[in-house]
Design a protein around this nucleic acid. Structure first.
Length: 924
RNA sequence: GCCCAGGUGGUGAAAUUGGUAUACACGCUAGACUUAGGAUCUAGUGCCUUUGGCGUGGAGGUUCAAGUCCUCUCCUGGGCACCA
């Protein structure tokens, strides 16, 4: 029998499915282990070979954990709401629900072919009303809670109301929006609308008029992580700033906990670093500056309180509220012109010319709190309205942006920290000694910061302050294909629906476009009202809503009473291992942590952090091929000769190129316009060949470099695909896809097959394994065990190859050895191993086998007893632990009886003696 | 500009964490078998001026010993970017 992978893989996939082999149960005596993949967005293009990389790694880990005696939860589902399906719907008129359903079916088919051990009973689709009922529920919970800074957790709004009615706003220490203080009497005299307006400043899910990233191309707002370089991540449309009333989540309330929580997580340093930067903690002080001839003050945030004596001007953000208070009549026109010009510049333009300095003087002055000098107040667009107080004290000598501004407008520069030369550029470093700074003179920068903050606080002109860059998440999208908000407006007051009315299902609409009067698509739905006629919210939730708690739903996917039951949550607790791309660092992985912390606060889940360990798989890039067309002709020249002609580079489908050589007939058949193409070929070793150029690019349809896993599975089988994707290199590294080495991996499986079968019949012996065989096997067991926890699967595959080569040399067909080998290999090549496992006479699935135990004694014993062959040379390796000099050891070792016996009559080619470590002697 | 990874044969990559550099695989070369080979097997394959020497982006350093540690520097990839 030869290795017929197609038959074998179909057979065992069917068996696993029919026998529910991978069904996870909560009533197990084994320890639990939860392994999660980032669920895919089912796009119309289907899976390419890059998608399964992480899935294969997690599946190997899953199967390994099962063999090691764990009760493993390994589910899969789909992140099914999103922009592409809606864009497609707008273009074709097809309902996103229909196309999504088709795409999911296609994904499932592709996933099934690779032999994953998912428990499909727990499948989750975010667009399923049974699922998004709980997304809506969570939103209502956030609406009904606020963040209490004393208890440092979310608490019910009802408790807040009680405090407000007894003590007024002073009785509450909450993470809230800007609130004007009010007394209990005032609160009690508020009408319903006034009360709600106040409460909106406290709620964790709230409506706010904010500057948002508005994308006209997509007709919706976008979150910060959905915008890159002023363009939308999806579709690359320009994005501009616009003030709009939007639902928001008060993620910023959790910023300190999101930051501190990172310490206990087993995530990669680079990913933690990204989150740290995104959260962006900075410690400093808020200082108040009096405005000249006014009772008003300007408050600024600074991390460099030490440099306060170097302040030579103030700068306000164009959108700052201070602008109107400080602008004098004489400068009004100038300021208004400047504001108008700034507003016109899009986010993208602003980023494009960061270096251009612009600003305008307001006509007013501040009074320096220490020197009493007058400081001019300017407006500049390098100051951000949304960060700190929207105003800065400018210290041109020690801040490069202030320096550029001062130089441009010819404002004096005073050095207050020694150490740098400020004639050409500012000196920003936080070391040096203070000068020109009155009572700070002579102090080091760090001491000066402390002293100044103390001074500011004791004079009552400011306080120590920590700021975070993390903003509240904007949660509204003016879109159709998302979760509807469970909110209606009762006389303009936003009110949540009751649980009985959930899920609030997406209505049918005639078109997936905004209405004529600019309302979101849901405005087209007939009767988008509650039963008693109140209008429902028309925007929908963003993509990250559905993916923020899906891992909890897998624990208890069919529960109709809640997102997850207490029992299921207590059993599975949290995700032990999460595998996915690093591109979610500042989006999904922040929102999920926030969402989970919130559910933890309200006592709904038992763990504060959702993902204990996170492994990022690298991206698989495409490897594109090019042909070179003579300009204006239908003639193509091979890579080696192209410099002799005037050519144009054209992407060619990588599927008709093998080892960079073009299949010329297939090329002619590829597209009609190339039907009559002619070629200028190269002669290499007597063959006429057309060589293609190549480049590493993103895998995408337009570059014709997409490789579909189905093609690989068809040609080599799923097990070869799985092994090859792991063999390609370290999991976390990005790498281009190429099939150059896949033959070697496929050959490896055939070699194992041949250990079992001679002349197509199964031949295994039941004799006792020899020490050599045991050594070979246990070397492999050791290596694979070591690799598993670091996901170094590429070296595991190598270890298997070495093992099989050595066993083939020993002509091993021992049942015990082969059985252990197959068990160890089964997580990597499950179908293949399941087949051989049964051939060895086992009744149950190999998934219920036990991982072979490592016996180090086989290794140690043989190291001393058997000289081994490395790279064709005989070597004697020996562990020594003598604390002696090289020469002494050499003498001792060479004179030992064991070595004497071995080298007798042979020529010593090489001696390496390493104190305390090893002796390595190579003989001819 | 700031932060994080990384740089090893023709290629993908290993290296017991300071101890035989290039395991394993691809590719290539030669041979065997074959009507044939995009099949299988065997041997070889870092470089050079080859009784020897040089080699892990470059230059120094620590050490009996450095791909690994330290200093400087040059590239590549990723993230953040007027965050005061």
């Amino acid at each position: 029998m030869s290795y017929n992978f197609q038959e074998i893989e179909a057979k065992w996939q069917k068996y696993w499915n029919e026998n529910q082999t991978f069904k996870a149960e909560e009533n197990s005596t084994k320890p639990k282990y939860y392994i999660l993949d980032m669920f895919p967005y089912p796009s119309g293009a289907g899976l390419h070979v890059g998608h399964p990389l992480g899935y294969i790694a997690s599946d190997i880990y899953t199967r390994f954990k099962r063999l090691a005696g764990f009760n493993v939860l390994h589910p899969m589902g789909y992140d099914a709401f999103g922009l592409p399906a809606e864009q497609y719907a707008i273009q074709t008129g097809r309902h996103p629900a229909d196309t999504t359903k088709e795409n999911i079916a296609r994904y499932r088919e592709q996933l099934d072919k690779i032999g994953f051990s998912y428990d499909w009973n727990r499948e989750v689709q975010t667009c399923d009303p049974k699922y998004y009922k709980w997304t809506q529920w969570a939103f209502i919970q956030m609406f009904e809670h606020y963040y209490d800074l004393d208890e440092n957790k979310a608490r019910p709004i009802s408790e807040l109301i009680k405090v407000l009615s007894e003590k007024g706003s002073a009785g509450v220490n909450a993470h809230a929006g800007e609130i004007e203080e009010f007394s209990a009497e005032q609160w009690n005299s508020f009408n319903e609308k006034e009360r709600e307006n106040t409460l909106q400043n406290y709620r964790l899910a709230f409506l706010a008029e904010t500057a948002v990233n508005w994308c006209p191309g997509l007709g919706t707002v976008l979150a910060n992580d959905e915008v890159k370089d002023g363009l939308s991540v999806r579709g690359s449309h320009p994005v501009e700033q616009k003030k709009m009333q939007q639902w928001c989540l008060r993620v910023s309330a959790y910023a300190p906990r999101l930051l501190d929580g990172l310490d206990e997580l087993n995530w990669s340093d680079s990913l933690k670093e990204m989150q740290k930067n995104w959260i962006g903690k900075s410690v400093g002080a808020e200082v108040k500056f009096d405005i000249k001839d006014s009772s008003e003050k300007i408050e600024v945030f600074t991390t460099r309180a030490d440099t306060i004596f170097g302040v030579s001007f103030m700068v306000l953000a164009p959108e700052s509220d201070y602008v109107s208070t400080v602008t004098t009549e004489a400068h009004k026109q100038e300021v208004e012109d400047y504001l108008a010009a700034t507003k016109k510049r899009s986010e993208r333009d602003r980023l494009a010319d960061v270096k251009r300095v612009s600003g305008v003087f307001t006509g007013s002055y501040c009074i320096h709190p220490f020197t009493g000098k007058e400081i001019p107040i300017w407006i500049g667009d390098y100051v951000l309205g949304g960060y700190g107080t929207g105003a800065v004290m400018a210290v041109p000598a020690h801040d490069s942006r202030d320096y550029a501004f001062a130089k441009h407008f010819d404002i004096p520069i005073t050095q207050v920290v020694s150490g740098g030369d400020i004639s050409e550029e500012s000196y920003d470093a936080k070391n040096g000694t203070m000068m020109n700074s009155d009572f700070l003179d002579g102090l080091k920068v760090k001491e000066a910061i402390k002293k100044m903050i103390y001074e500011v606080e004791s004079r009552g002109i400011g306080k120590k302050q920590t700021n975070y860059r993390l903003r509240d998440a904007i949660f509204s999208r003016q879109r159709y294909w998302g979760e509807p908000f469970p909110i209606y407006f009762k006389d303009g007051v936003p009110t949540p629906l009751s649980m009985d009315d959930l899920p609030l299902q997406l209505p049918e609409v005639d078109k997936f476009l905004p209405t004529e009067d600019g309302q979101p698509p849901l405005g087209r739905a007939e009767n988008w009202k509650t039963k008693d006629g109140h209008p429902l919210e028309m925007s929908t939730m963003p993509g990250f809503a559905g993916s923020s708690a899906y891992y909890l739903r897998y624990m208890d996917p069919h529960n109709e009473e809640g997102l997850v039951s207490k029992e299921a949550n207590n059993y599975w607790q949290d995700v032990d291992l999460y595998i996915g791309g690093a591109e979610h660092a500042t989006g999904h992985l922040i929102y999920s942590r926030y969402w989970n912390k919130f559910l933890f606060d309200i006592g709904y889940v038992c763990k504060e952090e959702p993902f204990k360990r996170l492994v990022n798989q690298g991206m698989i890039q495409g490897r594109s091929n090019f042909v070179y067309r003579l300009k204006g002709k239908n003639e193509f020249v091979s890579l080696g000769l192209k410099d002799k002609y005037d050519t144009q580079e054209i992407h060619v489908d990588v599927n008709i190129v093998h080892n960079d050589q073009l299949d010329m007939e297939a090329f002619k058949a590829w597209r009609p316009e190339f039907k009559d193409a002619t070629f200028i070929t190269e002669n290499i070793d007597g063959k006429e060949i057309y060589n293609c150029g190549y480049a590493v690019e993103k895998m995408s349809k337009s570059m014709f470099n997409v490789v579909n896993p189905d093609t690989i599975v068809e040609k080599y089988g799923a097990d070869t695909l799985r092994l090859y994707e792991m063999f390609l290199g370290p999991l976390e590294q990005s790498k281009p896809w190429n099939t150059n080495g896949i033959e070697g991996v496929h050959r490896f499986l055939k070699k194992i097959w041949n250990l079992f079968y001679t002349d197509e019949t199964l031949t295994v012996t039941d004799s006792k394994p020899t020490p050599e065989e045991l050594k070979v096997l246990h070397t492999c067991i050791k290596k694979v065990n070591e690799d598993i926890d670091t996901f170094s699967f590429n070296t595991s595959v190598s270890a298997f190859m070495i093992c099989v080569n050595d066993l083939a040399k020993l002509k091993c067909n021992n049942r015990e050895i082969l059985s252990d080998l197959v068990t160890l290999l089964s997580p990597f090549a499950p179908h293949f191993c399941e087949e051989l496992w049964r051939e060895l006479g086992n009744e149950t699935s190999i998934s219920f086998a036990t991982i072979p135990e490592l016996n180090e004694s086989y290794l140690i014993e043989s190291t001393h007893k058997y000289p081994i062959s490395i790279n064709g040379k005989m070597r004697f390796l020996m562990d020594i632990s003598l604390d002696a000099s090289k020469d002494e050891i050499e003498k001792l070792v060479l004179e030992s009886a064991e070595i004497q016996k071995w080298i007798e009559g042979k020529e010593i080619k090489k001696k390496i003696i390493v104190p305390k470590k090893i002796v390595n002697i190579v003989v001819a």
